[in-house]
Computed example of a mutant assay.
Amino acid sequence: MTAPFTDIDSLRRLCLALPDGDDSASGLALARQATLTKPAGSLGRLEELACWLARWQRRPVPRLDRVEILVFAGNHGVTAQRVSPFPAEVTAQMVANFAAGGAAINQLAGVAGAGLRVIEMAGLVPTDDITRADAMSEAGFIAAVATGFAAVAPGLDLLCVGEMGIGNTTTAAALAAALFGGDGATWAGRGTGLDDAGLARKIAAIDSALARHATALHDPLQAARCLGGFELAAILGAVLAARLQHIPVLLDGFVCTAAAAALVRVAPSGLDHGLISHRSAEAGHAALAAAIGQVPLLDLGMRLGEASGAALAVPILRAACACHAGMASFAEAGVSTRA
């Protein structure tokens, strides 16, 4: 689908005019839940998930026949500030590992029964160092959002988004601070294994970036341009495209949530079609999830990225669909209802 925006102003207008879910479909799904052979509410969040899928797929009995995982990969100039224990070239090396089938996400996509595509952003040319310049020009930012937008295949039942990019927990933390307040110490975590000195450098880099881009912090999209990254922008674009195509979305961890949170700050209901798949062990993720009013589906102490948490949550949604579609009603099973 061709992106219907050419600059930040038209992108903002799109964010403010997104279609809503289908209340009729979710209402029928909720009514069906009330007839199934179980005490009301006894399947907990599985019931909620079935109704959520129904609302965004616009059908009372949702299905997950076509699930795809998109992993966007990008590099970050802020790595010059030694905010990661790994060099930037690891991004390209991991992309090659994805292509060879050797990464965790390859295995988890198979378990989830999902297709997997990995998209290199900007040829893996890094953004500018956010402590010294805007991460992206407006043209570069819009091109990255448009790449993510165009990557979403029509007809999907569920989209999972993830990322790969050395240094991107720094940019995600800076963006979280811009969107919700706080400073480097509020949002920075150890990423891929920083020691105390590395964490101090990361906090300092975030604070420096926030000070440099102070005039952009009032505008979520400008904050995403100045502080984010090509892969974060692409995630935003993919989430937008999914909304226009009535596709529900599973977000991965901290970086994905920060990327999509810019949409929430533009339009409070803009991420209603997206759920956070898991609570990352990265320090700021729990606070970020709370800031957008969500409770992640899983909490397994993971902080890998790659859409690994999103892939793990797909079988939970499959279970919700199976129970919703396959369980007998009280009448069908000849089971007595409450007296």
Rank of each mutant, 00 (worst) to 15 (best):
I276Q: 06
Q222A: 15
A3C: 12
E89G: 01
A205N: 08
P19W: 11
L221E: 11
R338K: 13
R190F: 00
L158I: 13
A100Q: 14
R265P: 03
L317A: 04
V95D: 09
H278W: 01
R117M: 00
S269Q: 14
I247G: 09
D272C: 10
L244C: 14
E231C: 06
A92S: 12
P220Y: 04
D9N: 14
M302C: 02
P126A: 08
H273I: 07
A17E: 14
A205G: 05
W187V: 04
T35N: 04
A188F: 00
A112W: 07
L232H: 13
D195Y: 07
G44E: 12
A291R: 09
A174I: 04
V255K: 09
V83N: 10
R201T: 01
L298T: 08
L156V: 07
T169W: 01
V295A: 15
G77S: 04
A40P: 01
T169L: 02
A197T: 14
E89P: 02
F230P: 05
D134V: 13
A139E: 15
A319V: 12
Q222T: 15
L18S: 12
A176T: 06
A122V: 01
D272H: 14
A311I: 10
Q245E: 14
L288H: 10
Q33C: 13
F180S: 11
D20S: 14
A88W: 00
A153R: 15
F72W: 11
H278N: 00
S137E: 05
L312Y: 05
V239D: 07
D9G: 09
A178K: 02
L36M: 02
A143C: 03
T127L: 01
V90A: 09
G293L: 07
G309E: 03
R265V: 08
G102H: 09
R303T: 02
V67N: 02
L317P: 06
S269I: 13
V67G: 00
V314W: 06
L199K: 08
G182R: 06
A40Q: 14
A289N: 05
A238N: 11
D134P: 10
C51A: 15
G198M: 03
I119A: 08
V111N: 10
I166W: 09
V255A: 12
